[in-house]
Design a protein around this nucleic acid. Sequence first.
RNA 1: GGGCCGGUAGUUCAGUGGUAGAAUAUCCGACUUGCACUCGGAAGGUCGGGGGUUCAAAUCCCCCCCGGUCCA
Length: 910
Amino acid sequence: MNEKDVLRAKFSKDPKRYYEVNLFTREGFIRKQCSNCGRFFWTLNQDRELCPEPPCQQYDFLGNPPTNRRFDYVDTWREIENFFVKNGHTSIKRYPVVCRWRPDLFFTVASIISFQRIEGGEVVFDMPANPLIIPQTCLRFNDIQNVGISGKHYSSFGMIGQHSILDGAGYWKDRCIDLDFELLTGPFGIRPEEVIFTEDVWVGFGAFGYSLEYNVRGLELGNAVFTEFKGTPSNYNIMQEKVIDMGAGLERFAWITQGTPTSYDSVFGPVMKQLIARSNLEYDQEFYLKYARIAGMFNIDEIPNIDTAKTHAAKKLKVSKEYLKNQTSGLEALYALADHARTLVFAIADGGLPSNVGGGYNLRVILRRALSFLDKFKWDISLEEVANWHIDYLKEIYPELEEHRDDVSTILHVEKQRYQNTLERTSKIVRNITKNKKSQSIDELIQLYDSEGITPDMLKKQGLQIEVPSDFYTKVTERHMMEKKDKERPKFDTDKLPPTRLLFYENQHLFEFTGTIVKIINGEYIILDQTAFYPRSGGQEPDHGFIGGSEVMDVEKYGNVVLHKVKGKQLAEGQQIRCTINVERRETLARHHTATHLVNGAAQKVLGSWVWQHSAYKDIDKARLDITHFAHLTDNEISKIESLANNAIRLNLPVKTEILTRSKAEQKYGFRLYQGGVVPTRDLRVLNISGWDVEACGGTHTSMTGDVGFIKILKSERIQDGIERIEFVGGEPALKHIQMRENILKEISETVESPQNKVVTVVTDLKRTNDILRKKQKQLIKELVYYEVPVMLKKAIEIKGLKVCVSKKEGLGEEYHVPVGDQAISTQPHLIYCGISLLEKSVRIFIFSGDEAQKNGVRANVIARNIAITLGGSGGGDSRFGQGGGNRITRINKLEDSLKNIISLHIKRE
RNA sequence: GGGCCGGUAGUUCAGUGGUAGAAUAUCCGACUUGCACUCGGAAGGUCGGGGGUUCAAAUCCCCCCCGGUCCA
């Protein structure tokens, strides 16, 4: 039994305490245990023996919905929203699907996530209203294989979040279930005896509780979690303020009112109509409904693969497997296409970019999956069109999608291009492989998949005979198992110390202050009661300066205290001491920090709304900003960003800060606030440069943008897929940089002896001349060979019937000896050519041995190696051509004689 | 966040320390002469960049740039 089962058993032992809500006693619900799976459930129907969930019960609403009215997706939400608002709830706009407020999640996976923040390693609940209702779009990528097939799985779905904190304004479980029951039986007109509640539990990050899941005709519609405990099931406390986390599927509510074969038909209404029309897909609707009834019973999580499930279904329907596949595969692809496109619309609108790392990887996977469906079925539909149909339909609930319509198209287009390039590349690689070999080893298969993205299936399709082990993907995963190294931070016991008062937030221009030394650790870390020293944080390097006569080398925040690392004179605890901050350093850092915000704002304006700050770093000599963007920045874009940022400086805008509670700040400015990442505090310091940038920021800044002076972008580079780094300088360092470049230019212009404005022409010319000279040299040596060879042959001496000639050249190397020697032995098979090159620190030897010479035992490589050994080096080659050398230059005088000796020794005349 | 693969002639790629190659495209010539084909020849390279090891580096080591790709 897993943790969840143990917990469920525990809570079900005491139903009165946990599960028996008001509604049950008032309306006469009976508690029963499922005779099949053993779970407990509450129902008005005395005769019911089975719990209401598949596989214990099958879908009874397909073609036969239990509601009195039919709603489409949008109207379903309107109906639910109206109901809860009438009952005292505030309707909240959805939060972004890209979850920037939780460091442990890429995407918002449940409505409650929107209101969870991490504070000091603990989850806290932070709701802008109480109670509230929210149509939270959630992204989940763990069931992609089932999307389009099961009829109910999605990569993104709307979670109706009904949330309440029991703190006076909110309510607890009785009212929650009353409301949910009333929603079903009232506005949706479902008969009370059709509503069944099942006992369940829920364990989340740092909190858990018991829950009542409600089902109608086999379909789970929602799950009301009563989050009462903080911690883990083995170690917990009862929460001060208990939280209602009721999450219901908007998709399922819409589905149950319509009773269509799949929920996709109900949810994607107009989009599905367009898709079916444009794809000219024909299928038997009657048959599909019958199939859907069976497919709905599949518990896809537990079925090894879809193929066997379909075989099963075909048997039951008494048709062939092929017929079933024909009838279903096209439609399933259309459903998946609709789902994937919708997910991409939300993700991209919220600033997510497909890439090969992080959450972007999930987005790229579904994007390519969608494109591959379009390819496979050769439908003349573009992903951009599908995205636009979704926006047309959904903008009524989610008007923000309309604002990002063009961005979505832009990014989908870029990604399609990339996908096509990859396809071409892949088929080329596969072609190469198939050319050389018919089979591949398992290691080679893994290598191909891991580094090129080529799956064994793709190879099989190309006619390769390969065997794929069943643990193939496990083996791939194993390759990625690596030890994780944690950066060690020195440990200090600072828990009992009072928090350091941060003076730089009270006055940014306080550069001198008096503090009391609270503690000194290891003789070098000083903790003061208050400090104006800014510690390293938010990518900003720390202040330097003096505490008394001791120099401050580093400042870091440790919990709630600030540690100053000092060098120099001894200080004593309890001492009151005068502190001064290096003003120039601080102001440079402040200028760079404000400049970062300006560059960020400019980049968003120049490139597009998908640009977010990924990370940033501000030092005194330069600063850098990493932004999310799908392509390499062009020179033109960089200069536009630079101009725009400098424009903001000239406008001399005020740099304002205000402290807001987190939820107020989020409501007022949106999640653009979290450019620099999550801020783990209840109150946010919001930095606002009107019209340019608003973000949560704890750094020190200039008062006006004009104080930055001047921004110069140095370079941009791609640090990973989807992230561009912009490196720049501001203020004094910017000027210094320009001056440095000026000096370089001056130096070049002096070296090439031309005015600065002609330098480019002159250097271009120099390079061209150089190229021409190199070619000419080659040509000349070729000509030289023609004249040199006869001269060389005349000088040759005879040893044991063979000819030997030695040619010594200073400075000239293989470019001379190789063609000369080559030519010489090709005309004179009895010749042994010995080239000697005298270089600065070494000697090189080139030996060519003619055909006849070789036959008489003179092997060029052997000669070369032997002579090279006397030079303190080594050599090699083949019997025709050998080379070697060494660095004992002093041996050069004896070299010619030794050569003759060695050759003479090797000649074996018969 | 953690990995892996690749970068050589205009193009597609061989090349595991010893003279940088093939195919194709290009140009010239021959055969034909309407195109095509065939044959012969030529030209085309800072082997992504920099540093190191070595007598010698496309090849080995380090750093960087560019492209691709997998996993969580």
